[in-house]
Simulated assay, not measured.
Amino acid sequence: MNWDVFITCAVTGAGDTTGKSDKVPVTPEQIATSAIDAAKAGAAVVHIHVRDPATGRGSRDPKLYAEVVDRIRSSGTDVVINLTAGMGGDLVLGGAETPLPLDPTWTDVVGATERLVHVEQLLPEICTLDCGSMNFAAGGDYVMTNTPDTLRAMAKRIQALGVKPELEVFDTGHLVMVKDLVKEGLLDDPLMIQLCMGIPYGAPDDPLTLMAMALQVPPGAVFSAFSIGRMQLPYVAMAALAGGNVRVGLEDNIYLSRGKLASNADLVERAATILTAMNARVLGPEDVRAKLNLKKRG
Rank of each mutant, 00 (worst) to 15 (best):
K63A: 15
L83K: 04
R57V: 01
A35H: 02
P190S: 07
V50D: 09
Q159E: 14
L267D: 06
M134P: 01
G13D: 01
V288G: 00
L294I: 08
V24H: 01
I274H: 11
A265S: 04
G185L: 01
T84Q: 06
R289W: 02
G132T: 02
W106I: 11
G244M: 11
A239K: 05
I126S: 05
R281K: 15
V50C: 03
I193D: 05
V92E: 02
D141C: 07
V109F: 03
Q30T: 02
I72F: 00
L267P: 01
M144D: 06
F6R: 05
E67M: 00
V92C: 10
T17A: 12
A262W: 04
S59A: 13
G58K: 06
I72P: 08
L122S: 06
P207K: 13
Q216A: 13
G132V: 05
L210E: 04
P204R: 11
L256H: 03
D78T: 12
G229C: 10
A66Q: 09
E29W: 09
V24Q: 10
G298F: 11
T150V: 15
V80H: 00
N135Q: 13
M1R: 10
G15P: 08
D180T: 15
G244E: 03
T128H: 02
N2K: 04
I158E: 03
P207C: 09
V11Y: 03
V176F: 13
A10D: 09
T33G: 14
V246P: 01
T77C: 13
L256Q: 06
E184N: 13
S133D: 00
L294V: 07
G298K: 13
I126V: 04
L233E: 00
A38D: 02
K156C: 12
A271M: 04
R281G: 11
K23H: 12
V80A: 04
A265I: 06
L191P: 01
M211R: 14
L102W: 03
L151V: 13
G19N: 09
R157L: 11
V79C: 05
H49E: 05
A240P: 08
P124N: 10
H118T: 00
G86V: 01
G243M: 02
A41S: 14
L175H: 08
Q30V: 10
T98N: 13
N253D: 10
R71F: 00
K63I: 14
